Amino acid sequence: MEIEQEKTDAPHDARRRELIRAAGLAAVASVAGVSTFAPPAAKAAPVGSRGVLGARLQGAQHFGITVQNMDRAYEFYTQVLGGTEIMRDGDFQGDVIHNTLLLVEELEAAERHVNPRTLGIPDLRGGAQRLDVRFIQFDNVVIELLQYRDSSQPQGSGASFAPPHENTSPAFPKSMHVCFYIRDDVDFNQFVRDLEAEAAKRGMINVKANRIVSSPSEQERQRAPLNTLTNRITSGKSDGWTLIYAKGPEGEQLEFVQVRGQAKKVFGEAYEARRRQAG
């Protein structure tokens, strides 16, 4: 049966790669003030100009978030933040996909003589757990939502196979975050307030943004003045960069930024320099 699974996985994965590739990304173009950018397909930069491997790359493809509730996360990224679905796939299982995603962690569990599940390793090999994915397109980034669930759980609304880890600080090594770019003409402070309100209307009360002032309680955080919802940098190399960190509905780390003035100039010059380097 495993041999049959390997045979069927190969074209399945190939179709998946083609669909993802077709989605494309504009990478840093929007931050640099450029609406679209397609890297030259036929002319790669000299190997030495970007390093041995850099000349073979075309930028970031997507960011992935492993979620507890697929339908809830999907609703947030499409209905609240306005992304559009590229594709969804799921019920991934079998030896090939298990090894592809989890072999290093599985070997670590064996070396430590612990149950693989205690290290967050689902059993995709035997099919006790399955993997579902959904890809969501934004203007300059693709977000992949992943859920690992027990085989008895339904796709989308079913429970995850394991609880989330307790370490939510972005300062922990191996933490990740997704950054969204806010248009220059948007009132950033109001955007943050509306983000929390829109999520709360959908029952996502754990969508919370930081403030730039200390808050002794959750109530005080909510009552903080509107002008404390974003950090606007007005000096130094980051002049023109405005940001805030927030938690998404799954507890994932998000960042929202505006890039104007000096910061936008710096990004724009770097973008144009890279284009010239690519020939």
Rank of each mutant, 00 (worst) to 15 (best):
I3F: 15
E4Y: 13
R16M: 06
A26C: 11
A29T: 04
S30R: 12
S30F: 06
V31A: 14
V31G: 10
V31C: 08
P40D: 05
G51I: 13
L57M: 11
G64Q: 07
V67M: 03
V67S: 01
M70G: 06
E75H: 06
T78L: 05
Q79R: 13
Q79A: 15
G82S: 02
Q93D: 08
I97C: 01
L101V: 05
L101H: 01
A109S: 11
A110K: 14
E111T: 05
N115R: 11
R117S: 14
G120V: 04
I121D: 01
P122V: 02
R125V: 06
G127Y: 00
Q129P: 01
R130E: 04
R130Q: 13
V133M: 10
V133W: 12
V133C: 15
R134A: 04
R134P: 00
L145I: 08
Q147W: 00
Y148A: 08
Q155F: 07
G156N: 02
G156S: 00
G158P: 00
S160P: 11
F161L: 15
N167P: 09
S169H: 07
S169F: 04
P170S: 09
K174Y: 15
S175V: 15
H177D: 14
H177I: 10
F180G: 01
R183K: 12
D185Y: 04
D187Y: 13
F188S: 02
F188K: 02
F191K: 00
R193C: 12
E196P: 03
K201D: 14
G203M: 05
I205W: 12
S215H: 00
P216Q: 11
S217R: 04
E218V: 07
E220M: 10
Q222N: 10
P225Q: 09
N231Y: 09
I233N: 01
S235Y: 06
S238T: 12
S238H: 08
L243F: 12
Y245Q: 07
G248L: 05
P249W: 00
E250G: 04
E250T: 03
E250H: 03
E252V: 13
E252W: 10
E252M: 11
L254A: 05
E255L: 02
E255S: 01
F256W: 06
Q258R: 03
Q258L: 04
A263V: 13
K264A: 14
K264Y: 08
K265P: 12
F267D: 03
G268D: 01
E272V: 15
E272S: 14
G279A: 10
